[in-house]
């Protein structure tokens, strides 16, 4: 037998060997283990404190919603008149009004009757931005319904309303059911 024939026989034997293992597959448990590693890797990208922070944010949002309470019915006869009286003057000259000292911007006590459900006091603190500039809200329609939100405003914001304070100032916001702020009232602690 010459070399070429031997090589042909060898090639045939190699093909048969290839056929024997052509359908070989790794066992399924390897893919299962590797998929678990992929999952662990995904979980590692979001460490426990991320989930904890998300849970805290949810809890905070829930608590804030509870403090705001259900929508407060406003006594239509009293509230619109008081709010109109409060907003009418400054809306005509906002620039000058901003420069006025505290006593030039008297904040009228809003005549709002709150329901018993929202009589418990709670507060929101933080930045007031975006806050509808009070001197732009003069032309807004009177809200049929709204909410009173307790907040704390920082000294810079309070100064814009003529209230001088070194610390945060507690206040109440009257927010109409359209989401726009109609009035603010600062509260003496």
């Amino acid at each position: 037998m010459n070399g070429d024939e031997r090589m042909k026989t060898l090639e045939t034997a190699l093909r048969r060997l290839a056929d024997e293992t052509a359908a070989a597959q790794p066992p399924a448990r390897i893919e299962t283990a590797l998929s678990a590693a992929v999952r662990r890797r995904r979980m590692a990208r979001y460490p426990w404190w991320t989930a904890a922070a998300a849970a805290l944010a949810m809890a905070g949002f829930w608590a804030a919603t509870r403090q705001m309470g259900p929508a407060v019915g406003l006594e239509q006869a009293a509230a619109p008149a008081a709010v109109r009286a409060q907003l009418a003057g400054p809306a005509e000259a906002p620039a000058e009004a901003m420069d006025q000292p505290a006593e030039a911007l008297p904040v009228a006590k809003p005549a709002v009757v709150r329901s018993k459900a929202s009589s418990g006091r709670g507060e929101l603190s933080g930045e007031l931005s975006p806050l509808t500039p009070w001197y732009f809200s003069g032309g807004l329609p009177q809200p049929a319904r709204g909410q009173i939100v307790f907040i704390r405003v920082n000294p810079q914001t309070a100064l814009r309303f003529g209230v001088v304070s070194e610390g945060q100032v507690p206040a109440q916001l009257l927010i109409g059911d359209d989401g726009l702020t109609r009035a603010i009232r600062f509260v003496r602690e």
């Binding site: 893919e31 590797l34 998929s35 992929v38 999952r39 995904r42 990208r45």
Partner: peptide, 13 residues
């Protein structure tokens, strides 16, 4: 896959 997408890994595998 590196971001943890199991279906992408499954396709490569």
């Amino acid at each position: 896959t590196a971001r943890g997408d199991e279906s992408a890994f499954g396709e490569i595998y």
